[in-house]
Amino acid sequence: MSAIRKRTLGVAAFVLVWLAPLGAALASPPHPEGAEAGPEAAHGAAHGAEHAGGIKWLGDGFLGGPGEDGRTGFIIILINFVVLMLVLNKLLFRSLRRSNAEASDVIRLELERATKARAEAEALVLEYETKLAALESEIVEIREHAKLSAEAEHARILVEAGEQAEKIKLAATRAAEREAARFRVELEREIVDQAMSRAEAAIRASFGGPDQRRLVDAWVEEVTAARIGQTSASGGAN
């Protein structure tokens, strides 16, 4: 419920509670027949005069309540009104005031929050406006920096690729040389083995008694000239 509506309702309730009984009391019509008839009419007139146009503070009934004339004493009305106000205060007005206060707090908080949000939004707008203003120059700067970096990277990659190519070339050359040397050694060994096999076969085929005697003679001559276990061994001693 909005604050204005609550306030309107409060004013209406005030008018209704305060002015309605007062208006009712003041609007109590006088007895017109008293002025038109005889003694009864005079009595009535006197009685009517007693009532006509004035406030009846106390009623003719029990405890000032409505009597035969149907009018209620103004004091009773006031008392009723006070009691009514107390009851309303107890049942309605307190809760109304409390809800009003709470609503007021909520509204105040909402206002503060909205104010703060607005300030933040304005600051953000200002920041983005500043950034947008600096964006163009930043774009140019980034582009220049990227260009320089790309050129440097390009140069570095070229240098590294050159070095790497040189290393690969060197390694390949060395590997080829090693392989060639290995093959050369293997080939030489194979040639030597085959040559020795053929030489051995030829020697076995041609080696005879005279050759054996010649070797033994040479050995005997050599060993005879040597000194084994005496001073030193020489010649064919291995």
């Binding site: 030489a199 020697i203 050599e222 276990g229």
Partner: peptide, 26 residues
């Protein structure tokens, strides 16, 4: 040995064999 002879005397070896000559040549 193919030819020649090899003698072992104590800790000495006196070798004049064709096998040893071929091995040395190899």
């Amino acid at each position: 040995l193919i030819g020649g002879l090899v003698a072992h005397v104590g800790s000495y070896t006196l070798d004049r064999s064709v096998r040893t000559s071929l091995d040395k040549l190899r």
